[in-house]
């Protein structure tokens, strides 16, 4: 049994998103497993980024449920009960369920611990690399500063928290190899470094699920390989599961454990990389083969 079926972290059920008359995502269901790197792929305009925006709360889906689990997997049994209640989340000792489609965007990150990056990098380019990483620790620091009041008075508890936040930033600077550039404005970094910084910034929110929108776009092969190492490291060392949108098949096939393929807002394939790679529907979607031909190919493969 696959891990995403056995120990799912995120479950999308019957997700539909319409913009006016346009159906961007149509009745999409899939799961992402805990500790997996799940790739969401598909041709341009397939609705991948829309799915991301629904998961991270930037769009409110027209229909469907998006649920995320913290802690023990047993808690999934209570999903329907949690949905029946009007609450956005159900938390008890050692476990929690979050109904992401009910949460506004910032709560998805703050409470459900889902972090994301953007297709067109969104760094705070006039702030330094270090500051970018500190902004990401906003909520933790807010609590430590007693919602600014204690911090203004300069109490030691806040100083300690601030020191810890800088240590954490240093840890990530080391991981993404940008220690030397910590005090430079983020906008001055080369493109590849900006991509890495955006990932590190997302990781500073201590997510359980990291959503990456085309992290390898615009990277050269060497940077791409570094990225693979970084992502695998995040999964191993930090125990964060990853959901990514990617066009670069070398990245997808090399690092992902699970691939979901979208075309015109509908799921056309779902499985291990090897399975998806050989799925005639996927090949057809990418190469632009008509439906009859797909059926023909399918018949051939099956026979």
């Amino acid at each position: 049994m696959n891990r995403w079926e056995e120990k799912p972290l995120l479950k999308l059920e019957h997700l539909t998103m319409r913009f006016g008359g346009l159906v961007a995502v149509n009745d999409l269901s899939f799961s992402a497993g805990e500790g997996d790197i799940t790739a969401l792929i598909g041709p341009n305009g397939a609705g991948k980024t829309t799915v991301f925006n629904c998961i991270t709360g930037f769009y409110k889906p027209t229909e469907g449920r998006i649920a995320l689990r913290h802690g023990e997997a047993k808690v999934w049994d209570e999903l329907d009960a949690a949905t029946a209640r009007p609450d956005r989340r159900m938390v008890r000792a050692g476990a929690g369920l979050y109904l992401l489609e009910r949460m506004p965007d910032f709560e998805v990150s703050a409470h459900a611990k889902v972090a994301r990056t953007f297709q067109n990098i969104r760094l705070f380019s006039g702030m330094t690399v270090l500051e970018n990483l500190l902004v990401a620790q906003h909520n933790a620091l807010m609590t430590a500063s007693g919602f600014t009041v204690l911090g203004l008075l300069g109490l030691p508890a806040y100083r300690k928290a601030e020191k810890a936040s800088i240590e954490k930033a240093k840890y990530w600077l080391d991981r993404i190899d940008l220690m030397d550039r910590a005090d430079d404005p983020a906008g001055d970094l080369p493109y590849g470094a900006q991509r890495r910084l955006e990932i590190a910034r997302a990781m500073c929110t201590e997510p359980v699920l990291l959503c990456l929108d085309e992290p390898a776009a615009g990277l050269n092969p060497r940077e791409s390989a570094d990225l693979n190492a970084l992502l695998l490291g995040i999964r191993e060392k930090d125990g964060t599961s990853i959901l990514l949108i990617e066009h670069d098949m070398s990245v997808v096939m090399e690092i992902s454990d699970h691939v979901v393929v979208l075309d015109y807002g509908t799921k056309i394939s779902d499985g291990k990389p090897d399975f998806v790679r050989n799925d005639p529907k996927v090949i057809a979607a990418y190469l632009g083969v008509s439906d009859e031909e797909v059926e023909a190919v399918e018949a051939e493969v099956l026979s």
């Binding site: 930037f58 910032f106 990150s109 760094l123």
Partner: peptide, 9 residues
Amino acid sequence: IACRSLGIN
């Protein structure tokens, strides 16, 4: 938007 993605209200 980036702020909201980092959990800032």
